[in-house]
Computed example of a mutant assay.
Amino acid sequence: MEDFVPSYELVDAVEYRKLHAATFELPDEWNRQRLEVGEWCKLMFRFPVNRDPEVERLWVRVTGYTSLGYKGVLDNDASNIEFIRTGEVIEFEPRHVISIWPPRSYFDSLTLEEDKGNEGEAK
C-alpha cells in the first residue's frame, strides 16, 4: 500500500476572475510576469479534502525562476491544513498570482501619451 501524500492545486487566478469579475481583482499580466526575487505574492491553494475553507490564500516569497514562471517559499501556514507549512518550496506561474507585495504603482499608459502631446503647454 502506498503512503498517503496530501496535495494541493494552485487556482488559476485568471480563470477564477472570469467567473467572479465583479468581486475579484488581480494584478495585470505585465506585473504578474515580472515578479522579482524577494517580492511576495499571494496564491490561492485548493486542497482536495473536505475542509472549510476549501481554498486558502497564502503568501509566497519569490526565490527564483523556473521555465514556466517562479519558485518561492511559503511564508505563512494554512489555517486548517497541517500538511503544508511555512518554508515549503512552491513552483507557480504568473496566472496563479492574485496579489503582489510590496504594492506596485500602476499607471495608465493613455495618461502618459496625453502628457507627451502637451509638453510645450503651460500647466
Rank of each mutant, 00 (worst) to 15 (best):
T63R: 03
V5M: 05
R95H: 07
T86G: 10
G38M: 00
I90E: 02
E121V: 14
V5P: 01
N118P: 10
V97Y: 01
Y65M: 10
V62I: 11
L110P: 05
L110D: 13
T111S: 13
T86Y: 12
S99I: 02
K42G: 11
F92Q: 05
R57H: 14
A13Y: 04
P6G: 08
V5C: 05
P103M: 06
I98S: 11
D3L: 10
W30S: 15
P102C: 02
P27L: 00
T111L: 11
N31M: 09
K123C: 08
N50D: 07
Q33L: 08
V37L: 01
F92W: 06
V60A: 01
S99G: 08
K123E: 14
T23F: 09
R51S: 11
E2H: 11
Y70F: 06
N50A: 09
E114H: 11
E91T: 15
D3S: 08
E119N: 08
T23M: 04
S99V: 02
P53S: 03
N50T: 07
E25A: 10
K18L: 14
N80I: 12
V97W: 01
V49A: 09
L26D: 04
W40N: 15
A13P: 04
R85A: 09
T63I: 06
V97D: 01
H20N: 15
F24V: 03
P102Y: 03
I98G: 10
S7V: 06
R51V: 15
I98H: 03
K116S: 11
V97Q: 01
F92C: 12
R34Y: 13
Y65K: 13
V89C: 07
T66M: 01
E93L: 03
I81L: 07
E114R: 14
I81G: 01
V11W: 03
G38V: 02
D75C: 13
D115A: 15
P6W: 03
R46G: 14
A122W: 07
A78I: 03
A13H: 05
G38H: 00
W101H: 09
R61F: 04
R95Q: 09
E121I: 13
T111G: 06
P102I: 04
A122Y: 07
S7Q: 10
P103W: 06
E36C: 05
E82T: 12
G38K: 00
G117S: 06
E29F: 06
R46D: 15
D77L: 06
P6I: 05
P94V: 11
D75H: 14
E36K: 05
F92I: 11
N80M: 07
